[in-house]
């Protein structure tokens, strides 16, 4: 496949100028995700009020795929209710683990569609999923570190 499918412009842009790449002053929950395989480390913090994600941000270091994925994630779940955010997470997971030949419904996948290319790179699926699992852990109020390994 063409590398451009994995490293789409959208991903490169998010990597260069990630959205919500900052610390939160008053997080209500947070978690650290770590991929021991490559050393990617990401912190996701959320401010949840009345079951609504009022703010979400991330810090840490990682590859373009993990950083762009975290960036897109924050833009998608901000302002959503926790169950809505979890639904987006499920959509994302379904997309990156779907069959390689399965067509991607760009309409339905929306902003997530850019990550469809990850399916061709099994070693990189974990990079794309790291931020999402970390957010999930934070939301589950799991205080402990989670790991994609």
């Amino acid at each position: 496949m063409d590398l451009r499918e994995l490293y789409q412009q959208v991903i490169l842009d998010h990597n260069k100028n990630p959205k919500n790449f900052r610390s939160l002053e008053h997080p209500t929950c947070a978690s650290e995700g770590y991929n021991p395989l490559c050393g990617d480390r990401i912190n996701v913090a959320l401010e949840v009020e009345d079951d609504v994600i009022k703010d979400v941000a991330f810090t840490g270091s990682g590859c373009a795929i993990s950083k762009a994925s975290a960036s897109v994630m924050t833009t998608l779940v901000k302002g959503k209710s926790v169950p809505e955010a979890e639904e987006v997470f499920r959509q994302f997971q379904a997309l990156i683990t779907s069959d390689l030949n399965a067509p991607v419904d760009v309409q339905e996948a929306g902003k997530l569609a850019v990550f469809a290319g990850v399916r061709e790179f099994p070693t990189r699926v974990k990079c794309a999923a790291l931020a999402w699992h970390t957010m999930q852990a934070a939301l589950a109020e799991e205080d402990k570190k989670i790991s994609t390994e």
């Binding site: 590398l3 490293y7 490559c38 270091s61 990682g62 590859c63 795929i65 790179f121 070693t123 990189r124």
Partner: peptide, 12 residues
């Protein structure tokens, strides 16, 4: 550029 991205591109 993160080494992981470099590795994937070189692998291609």
């Amino acid at each position: 550029i993160h080494p992981h991205d470099i590795g994937t591109i070189l692998d291609q």
